[in-house]
Each structure stands twice: as structure tokens, then as C-alpha cells.
Lab assay of single mutants.
Amino acid sequence: MAAGGDHGSPDSYRSPLASRYASPEMCFVFSDRYKFRTWRQLWLWLAEAEQTLGLPITDEQIQEMKSNLENIDFKMAAEEEKRLRHDVMAHVHTFGHCCPKAAGIIHLGATSCYVGDNTDLIILRNALDLLLPKLARVISRLADFAKERASLPTLGFTHFQPAQLTTVGKRCCLWIQDLCMDLQNLKRVRDDLRFRGVKGTTGTQASFLQLFEGDDHKVEQLDKMVTEKAGFKRAFIITGQTYTRKVDIEVLSVLASLGASVHKICTDIRLLANLKEMEEPFEKQQIGSSAMPYKRNPMRSERCCSLARHLMTLVMDPLQTASVQWFERTLDDSANRRICLAEAFLTADTILNTLQNISEGLVVYPKVIERRIRQELPFMATENIIMAMVKAGGSRQDCHEKIRVLSQQAASVVKQEGGDNDLIERIQVDAYFSPIHSQLDHLLDPSSFTGRASQQVQRFLEEEVYPLLKPYESVMKVKAELCL
């Protein structure tokens, strides 16, 4: 049975990233139509530049190519590739079939990587351009969430054990800070992308030097003109047959890092959902379990974690691919890159769409948070109580021993009897502590235990987050809708 299948058929496997999760716009960027249309555009740009620099290419040939950029006979191309065992030459023939007058000058002087690699770089750039505003929107939604809850005390956790208090907004800023680093890295790697350009079979530009009869300047002009037509500021000066596969490492490393950030955020949300302090959106008709109707599973956060793990592992592909590119190139890269580049971007696209949807509907339960604080705060307040007693004339050592005994009794009630923490009640009825009984409410005010959390939130948002989001103001209103 021949390899390949009808990918629109229910009898043929289709990647869930495309069929179930990723956005239509990201799927289109990695589609065959987008790819092969870009090949034709690159052939047109090459012909236009070659004509401008004096090669015998007519206006009629150029116009014929322009008129057929979208006229792609995919069936013919597939048949040609089956016959020739070469995808680029299959599309040269297919393009030439609908451009008979231009057929002889299509791909003039070029090698397969002229269309293959340059198209990949265009796709990487455009895919990054799709991700950047999506990530900015996630940051914006979380920034709104953090600002609104900047002063809401909550129990902090280290080692997932109760620690000092923080605020809900401050905790959210930990998430935002990681995503801001990801946004900066995505922008950097996007701006650092260079075009492969017009380089020939081993990167020496020998074929173009021959076409222009040894004119170095025209060869350099050709490279520059096509690079500018493709919208790049610069091209690699040095290439082998391909652009260095280190570029793929750079791009997928940034995406993998984004995956790590999203995994951490969504894990926190899942843990908070278990504590009943916070939940992701839950639709009115949504079913959490087929057997347990009360369940409210954090399905979206779980999906993000599941896909983020996949995204983090994909960076190993370009690392290994770059390491086995012998001399000017081997074909070890080809099949692998067809999979890992598309999957990385479709996965990143999915987790950003999902995280935006989550961040637009996060639900906080202040009463649950308050109750958990009441359970733990008495123990945390013991040092403040000791200091207040010393100020009232008591002995630190005597007070410490009193607190120690009462704390152990209260802990026994919590752990052995399943009761509430009654340390404060014990202190309130103990005559030894009568000098500070009137101060206990103040000493137990949760806001006095959150330090500068709310001020940190305000400063972080104003100095770091809002300036970073400013270039994306025009796209901030787009909502994230999930079908599944």
C-alpha cells in the first residue's frame, strides 16, 4: 500500500493539533497551500530580480507567473513527485505547466533550498508574528487579574506546605514575570531571523556568478533584492546548502521555554482548584465526569500541561538535527523538520489560546482563602504575639514557653481530632496574655502579614508589564474561544 493518505478522510490519521486544537490561522501558515504558494512567490521574486539585473526574462513571463501564483494543481504535483521522487522539481514542473512561456526560467540558477529553506524562514517569521500578540493578550488578562487582587491576602506555599502570606495578585505576578520573559525572547528570536537568500547549491553562489558572467556586484544585488522582497532586513552571508540548523534550535528553545512557563502556571491553577481557592472557567453544560456528576475538573489547565510537556520535548529534535548536518548538509534534517517545526508552533498556539481562555474567566473564592488563612495564621502570628507581650512588660522566655504549650495543644486538636485551630481562643482565655487581649485582632490582621506584596504588584505592572504590552494595544480586544 502506498504511503500517505487522504487526510480529510475519517479513515486516515490526522494530527489532533490540526484537527482538534490549533487555530485556523496557525494551521494555514503550515498548510501545503501556504507552503507551495510561497515557493511560487519566491520563484517570481527571483525572476523579477534577475530581470532587473539584466537576464533575458520578459515582462510577459513575469506576468504569467504572477497570474498563476494561486493556480496550484495539487493532484498534478503529487503525481509528479511520485514520478520524480523530488518535491521541488515536482512543483517546478507543475508551475511550468500553467506558465508555459515562463517554464524555462522558473528556478533559474537556484537549488531546492532556495524555495525550501527560504519558505521555512518566512513561515517561522509569520508563525512567530501570530504567537506574539496571543502571548501579549494572556499577559494582559493576567495583569488585569493581578491588579484587581493585588491586596487580597492568601496563604503562600513553599514545598506545598503553608508559608508566609502573600497576595493573590502577587502570586499571579510570578506567572506574568515568566511570560514577559517569554514574550521578550519570542520577539528577540523573531527579529534575529535572517533570510537564507540566493546562495546556490553549497552556499557559494557559483551558479549565479556564472549567470551574471562573473559580476560579483550583481550577485550581491540579486541576494539583497530577493531578501528585501521577502520582507527581511538581512540575509546570511555564510550558508551551506541550507541555512544553519542552529536557527531551528533557537526558535524551538524559546517555544519550549514558553511551554515550561505555561505548565507551571496551569499546575498552580490545578492545585488551587483542589484547594477550592480558584477555578478555571466551567461552562453551564460542561460535564466533569461521566460517573461523578459533582466533579469540576480543571480540564483546560490539564490540557495545557499535557501539550506543554510535548512542546518542551520537541527542542531535542533540532538539537540532534543540527549535530548531524555533515559538511554542507545531509538530508537527516528533512523529514524531522517537516514534523517538529509545525508541531512546535501548533502546540504553542494551542496552549496560548487555551491559557487566554482560562485567564479571561478565572474565578476566585475569597471566603475559602480566608478560612485557610484562619487555619494557619495563628501559628504564624506567634512571633508577633511574643513581641507584643514583651512590649507590655512580659518575659520573652516565659511567653515563648506559654505559646509553645498552647500551640501544641491547638495542633493536637487540628491533627488528632480534625478540629479547627483554636490557638487564639486559648490565648484569649489565658490570664497571662490579658495585657494584649485587646491587640489580638490587630495582630491577626492578614494584611499585616503580606509585606509589600501589593506595592510590588503595582510597581511591576507599571514599570515592566504595561510598557512591554504597549506595541500590542491594537490587538488586545480579541477574545479566545474554545470549541473543545
Results as ranks from 00 to 15, higher is better:
Asp216Gln: 10
Arg270Ile: 03
Leu108Gln: 03
Phe36Thr: 14
Ile238His: 06
Glu60Cys: 11
Arg245Val: 01
Gln184Ala: 13
Asp333Val: 02
Cys180Phe: 12
Gln456Gly: 05
Leu352Tyr: 07
Thr244Asp: 10
Glu280Gln: 01
Lys233Val: 10
Phe460Leu: 07
Ala102Ile: 08
Pro162Cys: 09
Val251Lys: 00
Glu60Lys: 11
Leu179Tyr: 01
Ser334Asp: 05
Lys477Ser: 12
Arg14Ser: 15
Thr227Trp: 05
Cys180Asp: 04
Lys187Met: 11
Thr38Phe: 07
Leu183Asp: 03
Ala392Thr: 10
Phe460Thr: 05
Pro56Ile: 11
Leu55Thr: 05
Arg338Gln: 02
Asp317Ile: 05
Leu152Met: 11
His310Val: 09
Cys180Ala: 12
Leu352Pro: 01
Met89Tyr: 07
Lys218Glu: 12
Val29Leu: 10
Asp317Thr: 06
Gly288Ser: 06
Cys399Asp: 06
Asp248Val: 02
Asp178Met: 01
Glu302Ala: 00
Leu258Tyr: 14
Leu331Tyr: 07
Val405Gly: 12
Lys134Glu: 10
Lys187Cys: 09
Lys415Glu: 06
Glu148Pro: 06
Pro100Ile: 09
Phe145Gln: 06
Ile269Met: 06
Asn353Arg: 14
Phe95Tyr: 11
Val364Gln: 03
Phe36Glu: 15
Thr119Cys: 15
Glu360Leu: 06
Leu275Arg: 09
Ile424Asn: 08
Gly54Lys: 09
Val251Asp: 01
Gln356Met: 12
Gly169Asp: 01
Ser261Phe: 00
Asp333Glu: 03
Pro378Gly: 04
Leu423Arg: 02
Val254Trp: 06
Ala163Leu: 03
Lys35Pro: 02
Asp445Ser: 15
Asn274Met: 11
Asn71Met: 11
Asp129Ser: 09
Gly451Arg: 03
Gly214Phe: 12
Val478Tyr: 13
Arg190Lys: 14
Glu370Asp: 14
Val198Trp: 01
Pro471Glu: 15
Leu346Gly: 08
Lys170Met: 07
Leu186Arg: 01
Asp120Cys: 06
Gly259Glu: 00
Ala78Thr: 11
Met316Tyr: 05
Val390His: 07
Gly116His: 06
His400Cys: 05
Trp175Lys: 05
Cys180Trp: 04
Glu463Gln: 11
Phe345Asn: 09
Ala411Gln: 15
Gln241Asn: 00
His400Gln: 03
Met89Phe: 15
His7Tyr: 12
Phe379Glu: 01
Met299Val: 10
Phe449Ile: 03
Phe460Arg: 03
Arg396Tyr: 05
Thr330Glu: 00
Ser257Gly: 11
Val262Trp: 03
Met316Cys: 08
Asp182Cys: 01
Ala18Trp: 14
Val475Pro: 15
His86Glu: 00
Met380His: 03
Phe433Trp: 05
Met76Arg: 13
Asp73Tyr: 07
Ala381Ile: 08
Asp333Cys: 06
Ala206Phe: 03
Lys295Phe: 01
Arg37Lys: 12
Ser151Lys: 12
His437Leu: 06
Glu81Met: 00
His263Ile: 05
Phe95Ser: 05
Asp422Tyr: 08
Cys173Gly: 12
Ala127Tyr: 00
Met76Phe: 12
Leu135Arg: 02
Met387Asp: 02
Arg245Leu: 01
Phe157Asp: 00
His442Trp: 12
Leu423Tyr: 07
Phe30Ala: 04
Ala256Thr: 08
Thr267Glu: 03
Glu213Gly: 14
Ile176Val: 12
Tyr34Glu: 06
Arg372Ala: 05
Cys340Pro: 00
Asp317Lys: 03
Ile176Met: 14
Met292Glu: 04
Ile265His: 07
Val226Ala: 04
Ser301Trp: 01
Pro281Gln: 14
Glu279Ile: 02
Val413Ile: 12
Leu252Val: 13
Glu462Ala: 10
Pro366Glu: 13
Phe212Gln: 06
Thr94Tyr: 15
Tyr432Gln: 07
Asp182Asn: 02
Ile62Gln: 06
Arg196Phe: 07
Pro56Asn: 10
Arg37Cys: 10
Asn353Ile: 11
Glu280Phe: 02
Ala322Gly: 08
Ser112Asp: 00
Lys470Met: 12
Ala146Asn: 05
Lys276Ala: 05
Ala22Cys: 15
Gln184Trp: 10
Leu183Met: 09
His91Cys: 09
Val429Met: 11
Leu377Asp: 03
Thr202Ala: 13
Ala273Lys: 00
Ser447Leu: 15
Ser12Phe: 12
Lys264Val: 03
Gly214Cys: 11
Leu84Ala: 10
Gln375Asp: 05
Asp223Tyr: 00
Leu314Cys: 11
Thr167Ser: 12
Ser261Asn: 00
Leu17Asn: 09
Val88Phe: 04
Phe232Trp: 05
Cys99Ser: 06
Asp120Glu: 13
Arg303Phe: 00
Ser207Tyr: 03
Met299Pro: 09
Ser207Arg: 01
Lys470Leu: 14
Glu228His: 10
Leu183Ser: 09
Leu406Cys: 09
Asp398Ala: 12
Ser454Gln: 10
Thr321Tyr: 08
Ile351Lys: 02
Trp326Gln: 06
Cys113Tyr: 05
Leu319Thr: 00
Tyr13Asp: 05
Arg149Leu: 08
Val413His: 13
Leu258Arg: 02
Glu370Gly: 08
Ile358Cys: 15
Gly169Gln: 03
Trp45Met: 08
His400Asp: 01
Arg141Asn: 11
Ala230Asp: 00
Leu482Tyr: 08
Gly419Tyr: 07
